[in-house]
Amino acid sequence: MKKPASVAALDDLGRVQLSKHFFLRDFLYSEIANFHGIPNIPDDPDLAIAAGERLCDALLEPLQATFGRIAIRSAYRAPAVNGFGNARQKAGKGGYNCSSNAASSAGHIWDRRDAAGRMGATACLVLPWFAQRYEAGADWRALAWWIHDHLPYHSLYFFPKRAAFNLTWREAPERRIDSYIAPKGCLTKPGMANHSGSHAAWYAGFPPLPREGSAANAAG
Rank of each mutant, 00 (worst) to 15 (best):
N97W: 12
C98F: 03
C98K: 10
S100P: 12
N101G: 15
N101M: 11
A102G: 10
A103T: 12
A103H: 13
S105T: 03
S105H: 05
S105K: 01
A106I: 10
H108D: 09
I109F: 00
I109L: 07
I109M: 05
D111F: 01
R112V: 08
R112D: 02
R113H: 05
R113T: 14
A115I: 05
G117H: 00
G117N: 04
G117M: 00
R118H: 13
M119N: 15
M119C: 15
G120M: 12
A121Y: 03
A121W: 01
T122E: 14
T122C: 12
A123F: 12
C124H: 13
V126I: 15
V126W: 01
P128A: 07
W129Y: 11
F130Q: 06
R133Q: 12
Y134E: 03
Y134D: 00
G137S: 06
G137Q: 06
G137C: 06
A138S: 09
A138T: 01
D139C: 12
D139K: 09
R141I: 07
A142P: 07
L143P: 00
W145I: 01
W146C: 11
W146G: 04
I147D: 05
I147H: 07
H148C: 02
H148A: 06
H148Y: 02
H148S: 02
D149C: 07
L151F: 11
P152D: 15
P152K: 15
P152N: 15
P152G: 15
H154M: 10
H154P: 08
